[in-house]
């Protein structure tokens, strides 16, 4: 799949944003007044900014309201609802923290769970796609949730809990790669089944339909990225897990280090997300003899 910047920014920033907001909402970052306003603002900015980036991907963003209509069947629609509802329902908690209303935390814990739900709906947009076997697996939601929690935890300065999250994320990443690498074969689609010609013999592409490029090839067939997959996996693990972990454990406590850890983690998340797309092979590639 084509790792489009808008989609990478959308999913990483909004994931981080909702993860962070979850910690704020759950009241795990004890803050008040302007300090609270600033942190909530960062959370909202990340989540909303991410969502805005997603509209860059749209051909007709002015019609975005229509995307709310199909919550009964469409994960993208559900995600839209979940995001907007969550952001709305988080507002009282934010106000409470900022202005010191001390409204019941139960509301906050509920909305924190909604943050995670939102991330889950995001992940399901990808995980539901049978056409992209690597994504079509429980590790996709697990990975998205781990990223959101970890990013949130690091940014929210959750100490050992953050370290635990990092370990969880590492496990999720490894699982995603492990199972992902086998998914295509598991699903069983081959050039033989795609063309129906498999029973006759070994099928190979003779000519592409067009010598020119097309939307499908640009969007779904991204062979270049996978060449560097191994390297990028290591880099993303280093950036998203190992370096922030080391910083958290070894570095002296303080907002600067927290921020550094969070930013490095975010860079790792983006690298991973780039790879998440670049590595994903759409079955349509079978028609082009490329995956």
């Amino acid at each position: 799949m084509n790792p489009a910047p808008s989609v990478i920014l959308f999913s990483t920033l909004s994931g981080l944003g909702f993860g962070f907001l979850a910690f704020l909402a759950a009241g795990l970052v004890p803050v008040h007044g302007f300090h609270a306003f600033a942190l909530w603002f960062v959370g909202y900015a990340l989540a909303v900014g991410g969502l805005l980036f997603s509209t860059l991907h749209l051909g007709n963003p002015q019609r975005f309201l229509r995307a709310f209509s199909q919550w009964r069947s469409s994960w993208l629609s559900r995600e839209a609802w979940a995001a907007v509802l969550t952001l709305l329902l988080l507002a009282p908690m934010a106000l409470s923290d900022w202005l010191g209303f001390d409204w019941p935390r139960l509301w906050g814990i509920g909305t924190a769970l909604m943050c995670l739900c939102t991330v889950f709906t995001t992940s399901m947009i990808y995980a539901q796609l049978k056409t992209i076997p690597r994504w079509n697996h429980w590790t996709t939601p697990a990975l998205y949730l781990c990223f959101a929690l970890t990013g949130g935890a690091v940014l929210a300065g959750q100490g050992w809990f953050a370290v635990a999250c990092l370990l969880g994320l590492a496990a999720a990443l490894l699982a995603h790669w492990h199972f992902g690498d086998r998914r295509f074969a598991e699903v069983g689609a081959t050039i033989g089944s795609a063309t129906g010609l498999g029973p006759i013999g070994a099928v190979k592409v003779f000519e592409h339909p067009h010598t020119g490029q097309n939307y499908l090839m640009r969007e779904m067939i991204h062979v270049i990225g996978r060449k560097h997959a191994r390297k990028l996996r290591v880099i993303s693990m280093l950036l998203a897990v190992v370096m922030p972990g080391l910083l958290l454990v070894l570095a002296p406590k303080g907002p600067a280090f927290l921020l550094a850890a969070a930013l490095i983690h975010l860079a790792g998340a983006m690298t991973q997300r780039w790879l998440f797309f670049a590595e994903a092979e759409h079955v349509v590639g079978l028609y082009y003899g490329q995956r």
């Binding site: 010609l197 190979k204 592409h208």
Partner: peptide, 10 residues
């Protein structure tokens, strides 16, 4: 779009 494949039977 029209694809073209080559198949080598056994």
């Amino acid at each position: 779009r029209v694809h073209s494949y080559q198949i080598t039977p056994e």
